[in-house]
Design a binder for these strands. Structure first.
Lengths: 92, 92
DNA sequence: AGCGGAGTTATCATATGTGATAACAAGATT
DNA sequence: AATCTTGTTATCACATATGATAACTCCGCT
Protein backbone atom coordinates (compact mmCIF):
# COMPACT_ATOMS: atom_id res chain seq x y z
CA UNK A 1 0.00 0.00 0.00
CA UNK A 2 1.39 3.37 -0.97
CA UNK A 3 1.85 6.14 1.54
CA UNK A 4 -0.75 8.20 -0.22
CA UNK A 5 -3.23 5.34 -0.02
CA UNK A 6 -2.55 4.91 3.64
CA UNK A 7 -3.04 8.59 4.34
CA UNK A 8 -6.19 8.64 2.30
CA UNK A 9 -7.56 5.61 4.10
CA UNK A 10 -6.67 7.02 7.48
CA UNK A 11 -8.48 10.22 6.64
CA UNK A 12 -11.74 8.36 6.11
CA UNK A 13 -11.79 7.96 9.87
CA UNK A 14 -13.59 11.10 11.05
CA UNK A 15 -11.61 11.39 14.25
CA UNK A 16 -8.30 11.02 12.48
CA UNK A 17 -9.43 13.50 9.88
CA UNK A 18 -10.42 16.03 12.51
CA UNK A 19 -7.09 15.70 14.23
CA UNK A 20 -5.27 15.97 10.94
CA UNK A 21 -7.04 19.11 9.92
CA UNK A 22 -6.52 20.55 13.33
CA UNK A 23 -2.80 19.96 13.06
CA UNK A 24 -2.73 21.26 9.53
CA UNK A 25 -4.44 24.51 10.34
CA UNK A 26 -2.39 24.91 13.47
CA UNK A 27 0.69 24.50 11.40
CA UNK A 28 -0.54 27.09 9.00
CA UNK A 29 -1.29 29.50 11.79
CA UNK A 30 2.12 29.07 13.39
CA UNK A 31 3.66 29.32 9.97
CA UNK A 32 1.92 32.61 9.39
CA UNK A 33 2.96 33.96 12.74
CA UNK A 34 6.58 33.09 12.16
CA UNK A 35 6.37 34.53 8.71
CA UNK A 36 5.26 37.87 10.08
CA UNK A 37 8.05 37.96 12.61
CA UNK A 38 10.80 37.02 10.18
CA UNK A 39 9.50 39.51 7.64
CA UNK A 40 9.71 42.14 10.33
CA UNK A 41 13.21 40.99 11.18
CA UNK A 42 12.48 40.82 14.88
CA UNK A 43 13.54 38.44 17.62
CA UNK A 44 11.04 36.81 19.93
CA UNK A 45 12.26 39.07 22.68
CA UNK A 46 11.66 42.20 20.62
CA UNK A 47 8.16 41.08 19.77
CA UNK A 48 7.61 40.27 23.43
CA UNK A 49 8.65 43.78 24.45
CA UNK A 50 6.27 45.37 21.96
CA UNK A 51 3.48 43.12 23.16
CA UNK A 52 4.35 43.91 26.74
CA UNK A 53 4.92 40.30 27.63
CA UNK A 54 7.73 37.76 27.94
CA UNK A 55 9.78 36.04 25.29
CA UNK A 56 8.86 32.66 26.70
CA UNK A 57 5.24 33.38 25.88
CA UNK A 58 6.15 34.18 22.32
CA UNK A 59 8.01 30.92 22.04
CA UNK A 60 4.95 29.14 23.38
CA UNK A 61 2.87 30.85 20.74
CA UNK A 62 5.14 29.85 17.90
CA UNK A 63 6.16 26.48 19.17
CA UNK A 64 3.60 24.39 20.86
CA UNK A 65 -0.10 23.78 20.51
CA UNK A 66 -0.96 27.35 19.73
CA UNK A 67 -4.57 28.35 20.19
CA UNK A 68 -4.27 32.07 20.77
CA UNK A 69 -7.13 34.47 21.19
CA UNK A 70 -7.90 37.01 18.53
CA UNK A 71 -6.55 39.83 20.65
CA UNK A 72 -3.27 37.98 21.08
CA UNK A 73 -3.04 37.48 17.33
CA UNK A 74 -3.72 41.18 16.86
CA UNK A 75 -1.02 42.18 19.33
CA UNK A 76 1.46 39.85 17.71
CA UNK A 77 0.70 41.13 14.24
CA UNK A 78 0.91 44.75 15.33
CA UNK A 79 4.22 44.06 17.04
CA UNK A 80 5.44 42.80 13.69
CA UNK A 81 4.01 45.77 11.83
CA UNK A 82 0.95 44.13 10.38
CA UNK A 83 -2.74 44.74 10.42
CA UNK A 84 -4.82 41.62 10.68
CA UNK A 85 -8.04 40.25 9.31
CA UNK A 86 -9.45 36.86 8.46
CA UNK A 87 -9.08 35.22 5.09
CA UNK A 88 -11.99 32.84 4.69
CA UNK A 89 -11.84 30.57 1.70
CA UNK A 90 -14.97 28.81 0.57
CA UNK A 91 -14.63 25.07 0.76
CA UNK A 92 -15.57 23.46 -2.54
CA UNK B 1 -13.66 72.24 14.77
CA UNK B 2 -14.72 69.66 12.23
CA UNK B 3 -15.60 66.14 13.21
CA UNK B 4 -12.62 64.84 11.31
CA UNK B 5 -10.30 67.17 13.18
CA UNK B 6 -11.75 66.11 16.48
CA UNK B 7 -11.33 62.44 15.65
CA UNK B 8 -7.82 63.04 14.44
CA UNK B 9 -6.90 64.93 17.57
CA UNK B 10 -8.45 62.30 19.83
CA UNK B 11 -6.41 59.64 18.10
CA UNK B 12 -3.15 61.34 19.03
CA UNK B 13 -3.89 60.13 22.55
CA UNK B 14 -2.26 56.69 22.65
CA UNK B 15 -4.85 55.21 24.97
CA UNK B 16 -7.73 56.49 22.91
CA UNK B 17 -6.03 55.26 19.79
CA UNK B 18 -5.50 51.81 21.26
CA UNK B 19 -9.14 51.58 22.27
CA UNK B 20 -10.25 52.83 18.90
CA UNK B 21 -8.19 50.31 17.00
CA UNK B 22 -9.33 47.59 19.31
CA UNK B 23 -12.93 48.45 18.63
CA UNK B 24 -12.29 48.78 14.94
CA UNK B 25 -10.64 45.40 14.59
CA UNK B 26 -13.26 43.82 16.77
CA UNK B 27 -15.86 45.25 14.53
CA UNK B 28 -14.06 43.90 11.54
CA UNK B 29 -13.77 40.47 13.07
CA UNK B 30 -17.43 40.33 14.00
CA UNK B 31 -18.25 41.67 10.59
CA UNK B 32 -16.28 38.91 8.96
CA UNK B 33 -17.89 36.26 11.10
CA UNK B 34 -21.36 37.48 10.28
CA UNK B 35 -20.42 37.70 6.65
CA UNK B 36 -19.44 34.05 6.59
CA UNK B 37 -22.68 32.97 8.20
CA UNK B 38 -24.92 35.02 5.97
CA UNK B 39 -23.05 33.86 2.89
CA UNK B 40 -23.65 30.32 4.05
CA UNK B 41 -27.30 31.14 4.59
CA UNK B 42 -27.32 29.63 8.05
CA UNK B 43 -29.02 30.60 11.28
CA UNK B 44 -27.11 30.93 14.52
CA UNK B 45 -28.76 27.74 15.68
CA UNK B 46 -27.60 25.81 12.62
CA UNK B 47 -24.04 27.03 13.07
CA UNK B 48 -24.28 26.11 16.74
CA UNK B 49 -25.34 22.55 15.88
CA UNK B 50 -22.46 22.12 13.49
CA UNK B 51 -20.06 23.48 16.07
CA UNK B 52 -21.61 21.23 18.70
CA UNK B 53 -22.51 24.10 20.95
CA UNK B 54 -25.45 26.36 21.77
CA UNK B 55 -26.99 29.17 19.78
CA UNK B 56 -26.56 31.52 22.70
CA UNK B 57 -22.82 31.08 22.42
CA UNK B 58 -22.94 31.98 18.76
CA UNK B 59 -24.87 35.10 19.57
CA UNK B 60 -22.25 35.98 22.16
CA UNK B 61 -19.58 35.52 19.52
CA UNK B 62 -21.28 37.77 17.01
CA UNK B 63 -22.68 40.28 19.41
CA UNK B 64 -20.59 41.29 22.31
CA UNK B 65 -16.95 41.83 23.02
CA UNK B 66 -15.73 38.90 21.01
CA UNK B 67 -12.23 37.64 21.65
CA UNK B 68 -12.49 34.08 20.38
CA UNK B 69 -9.64 31.60 20.25
CA UNK B 70 -8.25 30.46 16.95
CA UNK B 71 -9.87 27.06 17.30
CA UNK B 72 -13.25 28.70 17.85
CA UNK B 73 -12.76 30.80 14.75
CA UNK B 74 -11.84 27.65 12.82
CA UNK B 75 -14.92 25.80 14.04
CA UNK B 76 -17.14 28.72 13.15
CA UNK B 77 -15.63 29.06 9.71
CA UNK B 78 -15.90 25.35 9.01
CA UNK B 79 -19.50 25.36 10.16
CA UNK B 80 -20.11 28.04 7.55
CA UNK B 81 -18.20 26.12 4.89
CA UNK B 82 -15.00 28.10 4.95
CA UNK B 83 -11.36 27.36 5.44
CA UNK B 84 -9.52 29.94 7.45
CA UNK B 85 -6.16 31.63 7.49
CA UNK B 86 -4.78 34.99 8.50
CA UNK B 87 -4.56 37.95 6.22
CA UNK B 88 -1.72 40.13 7.49
CA UNK B 89 -1.40 43.51 5.84
CA UNK B 90 1.79 45.42 6.22
CA UNK B 91 1.27 48.71 7.99
CA UNK B 92 2.75 51.56 6.00
C1' DA C 1 -54.50 36.90 20.33
C1' DG C 2 -51.57 33.10 19.91
C1' DC C 3 -47.68 30.65 17.93
C1' DG C 4 -43.05 29.51 16.24
C1' DG C 5 -38.50 30.91 14.51
C1' DA C 6 -34.47 33.72 15.24
C1' DG C 7 -31.63 36.18 18.10
C1' DT C 8 -30.27 38.26 22.69
C1' DT C 9 -28.94 38.41 27.48
C1' DA C 10 -27.72 36.73 32.12
C1' DT C 11 -25.56 33.38 34.83
C1' DC C 12 -22.76 29.64 36.44
C1' DA C 13 -19.16 25.97 36.19
C1' DT C 14 -15.28 24.56 33.91
C1' DA C 15 -11.59 24.61 30.59
C1' DT C 16 -8.00 26.98 28.76
C1' DG C 17 -5.19 31.05 27.44
C1' DT C 18 -1.91 34.35 29.26
C1' DG C 19 1.63 36.69 32.32
C1' DA C 20 5.55 35.88 34.84
C1' DT C 21 9.72 33.65 36.49
C1' DA C 22 13.45 30.53 36.24
C1' DA C 23 16.39 27.20 34.26
C1' DC C 24 18.12 25.08 30.23
C1' DA C 25 20.06 24.27 25.18
C1' DA C 26 22.48 25.54 21.13
C1' DG C 27 25.34 28.79 18.38
C1' DA C 28 28.10 32.56 17.68
C1' DT C 29 31.69 35.49 19.35
C1' DT C 30 35.61 36.86 22.00
C1' DA D 1 36.75 28.17 28.05
C1' DA D 2 33.73 31.92 29.00
C1' DT D 3 30.07 34.82 27.52
C1' DC D 4 26.18 36.56 25.02
C1' DT D 5 22.22 35.93 22.12
C1' DT D 6 18.24 33.52 20.81
C1' DG D 7 14.99 30.33 21.54
C1' DT D 8 12.82 26.47 24.39
C1' DT D 9 10.56 24.22 28.26
C1' DA D 10 8.32 23.76 32.79
C1' DT D 11 5.55 25.67 36.21
C1' DC D 12 2.35 28.46 38.79
C1' DA D 13 -1.31 31.96 39.52
C1' DC D 14 -4.73 34.45 37.43
C1' DA D 15 -7.76 36.06 33.79
C1' DT D 16 -10.88 34.96 30.45
C1' DA D 17 -13.14 32.03 26.86
C1' DT D 18 -16.40 28.42 26.35
C1' DG D 19 -20.37 25.11 27.32
C1' DA D 20 -24.78 24.86 29.10
C1' DT D 21 -29.34 26.33 30.64
C1' DA D 22 -33.10 29.40 31.01
C1' DA D 23 -35.78 33.39 30.20
C1' DC D 24 -36.57 37.08 27.31
C1' DT D 25 -37.52 40.14 22.96
C1' DC D 26 -38.89 40.80 18.35
C1' DC D 27 -41.09 39.62 14.15
C1' DG D 28 -43.81 37.31 10.81
C1' DC D 29 -47.55 34.26 10.31
C1' DT D 30 -52.34 32.08 10.88
Amino acid sequence: MSLQKLKQRALTNPDVKAEYEKLESEFNLIDQLLSMRTKAGLTQEQVAERMQTQKSNISRLEKGNANPSWSTLLKYAHACGFELSLKPQKIV
